[in-house]
């Protein structure tokens, strides 16, 4: 799945975050989006998901200008191909981790008979095999982040959007998460778009880096 930002402008009232911003992400890319707080990292993720609309320009996802799609079903279809790891987890609190993953699998219409084995596989992948029956409130920050990753991986997405996934993790867990994402990227050619503050990763890994600035003139 190819993602293209074509002269995208985004304002929050008088604050300009992007102005004529261009970006092309190819299938299989692993990209770090870095920048200080308020530079537009999360905005970029929200724009890809069509959670917010740009003030100008187009965001092409899978060949379609997602911001101009009138048919909501088309937007839902695109979202079903994207796995998201939210900064604030966005897990449903009164469902267990297993149920949260099952819900996502149900949304993407994953074959019913394959749901249980798929959950087993992803919880093992993120090392939550003994915790998946617990509720989000019973897990630590690191475990929640891994639960989010498990949910994103479960649907075998074409793209993973990870919004500050290591923000709540200790260095060991953070590196483990990065390793998992790297493996997924290598093995399945899944596009990974990860926002982060952490310069250790960006400096240590040989990946594409998009640096966003505090000033909109830098985000062009």
């Amino acid at each position: 799945m190819e993602i293209i930002f074509d002269k995208v402008t985004k304002n929050y009232g008088p604050i300009n975050v992007f102005r004529d911003f261009d970006l092309k992400i190819n299938q299989g890319d692993f990209i770090f989006i870095t920048g200080p707080s308020g530079s537009g990292k999360s905005t970029l993720i929200k724009l890809i998901l069509n959670q917010i609309k740009p003030n100008g320009g187009d965001i092409m996802v899978d060949g379609q200008a997602i911001n101009k799609l009138k048919n909501k079903n088309e937007i839902d279809k695109i979202r079903r191909k994207i796995g998201v790891i939210f900064q604030d987890f966005q897990l449903i609190n009164d469902l267990t981790i297993e149920e949260n993953i099952a819900l996502n699998l149900d949304i993407v219409k994953y074959p019913h008979s394959e749901v249980a084995p798929r959950i087993d596989k992803v919880v093992k992948m993120v090392k939550l095999q003994h915790r998946h029956f617990l509720f989000p409130s019973q897990l630590s920050g690191g475990e929640l982040q891994r639960a989010c990753l498990a949910r994103a991986l479960s649907i075998e997405p074409e793209v993973i959007l990870a919004d500050e996934p290591t923000g709540n993790l200790d260095p060991t867990n953070a590196w483990n998460l990065i390793k998992i994402l790297q493996n997924i990227n290598k093995k399945y050619k899944t596009t990974i778009i990860m926002t982060t503050h952490n310069t250790d990763f960006t400096e240590s890994l040989d990946k594409k880096i998009i640096k966003l600035g505090k000033n909109e003139n830098e985000n062009t």
């Binding site: 998901l49 909501k72 695109i78 979202r79 191909k81 994207i82 819900l103 993407v108």
Partner: peptide
């Protein structure tokens, strides 16, 4: 919140 999350995950 649950509805919003489901919609972001692609639920119609």
């Amino acid at each position: 919140e649950e509805i919003k999350i489901s919609r972001l995950l692609g639920a119609s």
